[in-house]
């Protein structure tokens, strides 16, 4: 905290960043439920599907409330003028992670997946690793936000970590798509194929949006340190 006797210049901003770290945690919980949704879909358990999907939706809604609250606080006068809009963009980008998790959960539960080849893809190690790296990207993003209270070099290092997890997630996404289309060879019904494919693309956006948030952090560093 920056202060002179009797005057503190960054109490509000410190509180906002702490709240942002908690907010990313909430977004992470939203994204983490995706593995429960995928497991339920692969098991064909309709009740579990509904429950886990509802869980994702509720968490996303809570995240939206927090995002609104943070945006209002910032818009009312926190941070230097030129940095303020980047902070607002950062919050919007973080919220889009939860949004994409919600879209992915909605997509995969639109119709029952019964095709055994598609279920194999959902149960595969590649899918587990893919979802794990999505989570890693969001955890790295949380760590990046915490670095706002540390120093510039740590922020930059942690931006690179987010990018690495996004790239790793991309690798597993590629493996999943190859497996999906190889296994299909005209045998998986087109609706199921599209459903699973779109789910993979949508879920991948979780990591992409984490990377985008990291890019905004780089802009903050560039502007802040002159």
């Amino acid at each position: 905290m920056v202060s002179l006797p009797g005057v503190t210049f960054s109490r509000k901003e410190n509180a906002i960043v702490k709240r942002m770290v908690d907010y990313v945690l909430l977004v992470r919980q939203t994204e983490q439920r995706l593995s429960d949704v995928v497991s339920a879909v692969a098991a064909g358990d309709a009740a579990a599907c509904l429950e886990s999907r509802t869980g994702v939706f509720d968490l996303e809604s809570s995240a939206a409330d927090v995002a609104r609250e943070l945006s209002t606080q910032i818009a009312k006068g926190a941070f230097f003028g030129g940095v303020r809009e980047d902070m607002l963009n950062l919050i919007t980008k973080i919220h889009s992670i939860a949004d994409k998790a919600k879209d992915a959960a909605r997509l995969i539960t639109l119709a029952r997946v019964t095709d055994p080849r598609a279920i194999d893809v959902l149960r595969s190690d590649d899918m587990k690793q893919f979802l794990a790296n999505l989570d890693n990207a969001v955890v790295a993003l949380q760590s990046l936000i915490e670095a706002f209270a540390l120093n510039r070099n740590t922020v930059i290092e942690r931006v690179h970590i987010v990018k690495e997890h996004e790239e790793t997630a991309d690798t597993f996404k590629q493996n999943l798509l190859v497996a999906l289309f190889e296994k299909s060879q005209g045998e998986i019904d087109p609706v199921t194929l599209i459903l699973v494919r779109d789910f993979i693309f949508c879920a991948d956006d979780v990591a992409d949006r984490s990377e985008d948030a990291g890019d905004i952090a780089l802009v903050l560093v560039a502007k802040g340190y002159g």
Partner: peptide, 18 residues
């Protein structure tokens, strides 16, 4: 620049505003 290079983003923002 020399004085702020090792400060946190939050501290730099506060110094800019002050």
């Amino acid at each position: 620049q020399r004085a702020t290079v090792n400060l946190s983003l939050l501290s730099v923002d506060a110094y800019n505003r002050a």
